[in-house]
């Protein structure tokens, strides 16, 4: 850390910089912002962090957020234990849960691979995923990362390490939205839906 920060400030910047997606510049900006807050605001922020840390934890199996050691989904005996859906973020899990259609289990990677954000595969819950797969006898792994460059690259990384294990690895479909009107779809979506078409 450059010497032109006073020690407490450089410590704060250093701590913030450890957060995923926060580079040196953002860490500085956040640190300066925090210094401008009132003492009460800073107190409330640090309390919120401590409380969240105390009461919310990652499920020891799937890394979804939970207030117990294992989350409700992992504990639920009615779940289909042959199916595993891999998502980048706990928010994506919530999105799938809202459909109440998917009955399998999840694995939350806690991010996607992104060199620009300093996130390599070793920072995601991939080793844990490999361990689960080796122990739990899934039949199919559904890779449900977003169809962005980073989501696709992460999916590709997962496919490369999971396929040799001899189980079915699938990727969620992308293309036309359900109930969508062809006339209103943008060209990129239409081209994608042609590319990913399937035989009837």
């Amino acid at each position: 850390m450059p010497s032109y920060f006073t020690r407490p400030l450089s410590k704060l910047v250093g701590e913030l910089e450890k957060l995923p997606g926060v580079g040196p510049k953002s860490a500085q900006r956040l640190a300066f912002h925090i210094l401008r807050l009132t003492a009460e605001e800073v107190e409330s922020l640090s309390q919120a962090i401590l409380e969240a840390k105390e009461h919310v934890r990652a499920c020891s199996i799937c890394y979804n957020y939970s207030d117990q050691d294992t989350c409700e989904i992992c504990r639920d005996a009615r779940r289909d234990r042959s199916l595993l859906c891999v998502v980048a973020d706990a928010r994506d899990l919530v999105a799938f849960e809202r459909t109440s259609e998917y009955k399998g289990l999840y694995h939350v990677l806690q991010g996607v691979i992104s060199p620009m954000d300093g996130v390599g595969p070793e920072m995601l819950r991939i080793r844990e995923l490999q361990k689960r797969i080796a122990e739990d006898g899934f039949q199919e792994i559904i890779v449900a990362t977003n169809p962005t460059i980073e989501g696709d690259a992460t999916a590709m990384y997962l496919a490369a390490i999971l396929k040799p294990l001899g189980l079915k690895v699938s990727r969620i479909a992308h293309g036309m939205p359900v109930g969508g009107d062809l006339d209103y779809a943008d060209q990129a979506t239409l081209v994608q839906s042609l590319e990913w078409r399937r035989e009837m």
Binding site: S114, M116, I149, A153, D186, A188, L190, V191
Partner: peptide
């Protein structure tokens, strides 16, 4: 060709990640 611009955008993003 709108789809070209879409691909070009994805291409640029992939390039940025690759360079990093």
């Amino acid at each position: 060709n709108q789809a070209y611009l879409f691909d070009l955008g994805r291409c640029r993003r992939a390039l940025e990640q690759k360079n990093r």
